[in-house]
Amino acid sequence: MIIVRFVRGVNRNVSLSALPEFPRTAEPRAKTRPTLPASPHTRPVAREDFAEVLARAQAGDEAAFSRLWIDLNPRLVRYLRMEPGRQAEDLAAETWVSVVKGLKRFRGDETAWHAWVFTTARRRALDDARRRARRPQTSGPDALDHLAARPDPRPSDGTDGAAEALRLLSTLPPLQAEVLALRVLAELPVDTVAAMLGRSPGAVRVAAHRGLRTLAARLSREGVTH
């Protein structure tokens, strides 16, 4: 019920013309860094002219890279927020550092671009999971303080529909949750997701199928209860 209330009113078909207009030709490098455009949307703004934007970003155009970042970073953060206890923003920043390092060498279309960025983010997340696993387990009041001081990466105050959707998504089995996240947030096809996760395309299809059916069942029950 809560989710239904939040997701209503979200206009998915946001026109690309409403997004900030970026110069089509490379302009001289500005002294000040470009400011964040207002009301960025998670829709892939670079879809129509991705090749041109990517080429400009690879040539050093800050506006083009800004467009790529605004296009993908919110989805990246949401993907990383699915697992509790993960510093999604920090991992996203590490991901972009790696992406910037290899940006000039990247070749491919927008799907390949999404796959590359999300694969990088997934590796950073696995590295972070290993670091946290090696970290000595603290107990006592200090550990509790540490957990209390850490902000909840998935706010569930009812004002963020994406956060609530992530919360529900994270209740799914990990494979189903990750398959759905990669297919929805990264907009990756089945084969790409299968390659990223080391699973067969059939297993990915089944995971997505079962995950959606599970969510539908849960939402149906929540709607009845609420």
Binding site: I3, V10, R33, R43, S66, W69, L180, L219
Partner: peptide, 23 residues
């Protein structure tokens, strides 16, 4: 609707790394 919400508008907390990324 849930899937639609996953791709909804970005919130401020999802754009905090903009300056660091541009740097």
């Amino acid at each position: 609707d849930l899937v639609h919400a996953l791709t909804g508008p970005a919130v401020a907390s999802e754009l905090t790394g903009y300056r660091a990324a541009m740097t």
